[in-house]
């Protein structure tokens, strides 16, 4: 057993867990943050993607104890209060989800992708960057559309912020 301490969605949390506990299970079972899902055993489906220290990682492929000391953002912590994050809003607007199971991982991956491509994205890049997220419902068509739309919205927003600052 080890003591794990994390900042999750802005809140400091800790708990004693078996060393074999995966981060995803700590989030789901200890913190009751069940938005992060497990869809495979081989680190491929991406339903478990969260941000650890600002980067998208697969929480099924990291021990909770390994993450101890880190800052974690899950799907539950993405929206700003009642306001949806632009990626969440874009998934809804563009029908980028059906059963919803892969959606949290998709949105966390998309948010990370957009952060890393501040100058915008094209369809081929989005499709390549989604390699680690599997969806069985949408055929990806509307997921790609949603990410492109969110990327546009967010780069516009950051540009107008930058303009104001200047």
């Amino acid at each position: 057993m080890s003591e794990v301490t994390l900042v999750v969605n802005g809140r400091k949390v800790s708990g004693a867990v078996e060393d074999r506990t995966l981060l995803v299970h700590f989030l789901r079972e200890n913190l009751n943050l069940t938005g992060t899902h497990v869809g495979c055993d081989t680190s491929q489906c991406g339903a478990c993607v969260v941000h650890v220290d600002g980067k998208a990682v697969k929480s099924c492929t990291m021990l909770a104890v390994q993450a101890s000391g880190s800052t974690v953002t899950t799907i539950e912590g993405l929206a700003n209060g009642a306001d949806l994050h632009p990626v969440q809003a874009a998934f809804k607007e563009n029908h980028g989800l059906q059963c919803g199971f892969c959606t949290p991982g998709m949105i966390m991956t998309a948010t990370d992708m957009i952060r890393r491509h501040p100058d915008g994205l094209d369809e081929a890049t989005v499709r390549a960057e989604l390699e680690g997220n599997i969806c069985r419902c949408t055929g990806y068509h509307n997921i790609v559309k949603a990410i492109l739309a969110a990327s546009k919205t967010m780069s516009k927003a950051s540009k107008s912020k930058a303009n104001k600052a200047a």
Binding site: G46, A56, V57, K58, T61, M113, E131, G132
Partner: peptide
């Protein structure tokens, strides 16, 4: 290698 999340780790 892998996917973006894998490359981060």
């Amino acid at each position: 290698i892998g996917d973006p999340a894998v490359r981060h780790r």
